[in-house]
Design a protein around this nucleic acid. Structure first.
Lengths: 205, 205
DNA sequence: TAGATAAGTAATCATTCGATTACAACACTG
DNA sequence: CAGTGTTGTAATCGAATGATTACTTATCTA
């Protein structure tokens, strides 16, 4: 026993700070993705991660540094997925393979949405810098590593921004009830639509 | 904390509430576009509009209703620009004309960015509803009024989301110093780039 | 096993912010 | 010009939130 204080559910087990940090980062990605940077509280992140609010703050210093860490991690995951997809040998054209890899990331709810929130905060000195660098990193990857022309890379990114927007809009919520939403979704994301419906719901902002 | 001394800056002139409302709405569009919904305070809007903070709140009821009004206005302006552009008789293909009309709107700093901020807040019950409806309104316009196929409309919107993102990123700030940023901008927005540079700057988040 | 180090929390503080209230003055109508 | 509705503000409140402090307790090592 030896459990003590008011609140129950005492795990009493400790974790290495690295693991805990990764866990908090994932939780933060989800919350930031749903509510945006300013709309997210450190307490919401803490609750999602199952730790206390002061711990979240102390672990990353400030809320802004936490968000920057989320952005960096999201870009790392994205680039890793792209590089993996590029390295694959397959009959499918590279462009399509990358598109599928990107669509796969959409299932990780907050990941691309956290990035998207960062992208529209370019006026913030720190966040804007990180966001621009990340965006250009992807652009360069598409050109240099994949071998796309500027126009091809731009179009690929445009398609990605469209997918991000549709997810951010939660357009999938209207799939069953709104024929327009359905048509748009099936046009914009022909494959992989199934991934977004089902585990997509829950949580009302 | 907006103004300064006790009785200063006395304009002494009244305004019809309609004018004042429109003025506040424009100011709010600018601030929301730059800082997002949650990142904007009603006092920032009030200062930008040159009125007091309580007045802004009372005029719209709540901050959320103010943001919803901003979204509705932005959609109205956007649709009006599209309809006007569609009605024009010109040698330029409709698709290109609409693209130019959209690019023109980018010069109104907050307008498309406020929309974009709304688009990524789909999890919010009220904002999400408005954002989805607005997005689908544009999609339907492109199909029904312009006569685009679903695929054409989707691609057009994708391009628009890309432009919004580049503006949100303030990528234009790096135009002179970063060759990648320059190339990307010139690829993604071949015309109209000039509109975004120059009056684009000012205001640090 | 003592003791240090690191993981983690409860309590709390200072600000910020949206909202409310009470009040002031301009402008129109009769 | 009296009276009234509307435009607008100053003052302020209560809740929320990021951050700090001080304190516990698990785990590792000498």
């Amino acid at each position: 026993m030896s459990s003590m204080s008011t609140t129950a559910a005492v795990p009493t087990t400790r974790m290495a700070s690295d693991e805990r940090r990764a866990l908090v980062l994932e939780a933060a990605t989800g919350v930031f993705g749903q509510r945006g940077y300013a709309g997210t509280t450190t307490d919401q992140v803490a609750t999602a991660a199952g730790v206390s609010q002061p711990y979240v703050v102390r672990m990353f210093g400030t809320k802004e540094k936490l968000f920057l860490a989320v952005l960096h991690r999201a870009l790392d995951v994205l680039m890793a997925a792209f590089r993996r997809s590029l390295a694959e040998k397959s009959a499918i054209p590279v462009h399509d393979r990358l598109g599928l890899a990107y669509a796969d990331l959409l299932t990780d709810r907050g990941l691309l949405l956290s990035l998207m929130h960062g992208f529209v905060l370019g006026s913030d000195p720190e966040i804007g810098k990180t966001a621009r660098e990340g965006f250009l990193e992807v652009y360069n990857f598409l050109k240099v590593d994949v071998g796309m022309t500027p126009a091809e890379a731009s179009d690929f990114l445009a398609h990605g921004m469209m997918l991000n927007t549709l997810v951010g809009l939660r357009m999938t919520d209207d799939y069953d009830t709104n024929p327009d939403a359905r048509e748009l979704l099936e046009t914009a994301m022909p494959t992989k639509l199934g991934l977004l419906r089902g585990p997509t719901n829950s949580e009302g902002a």
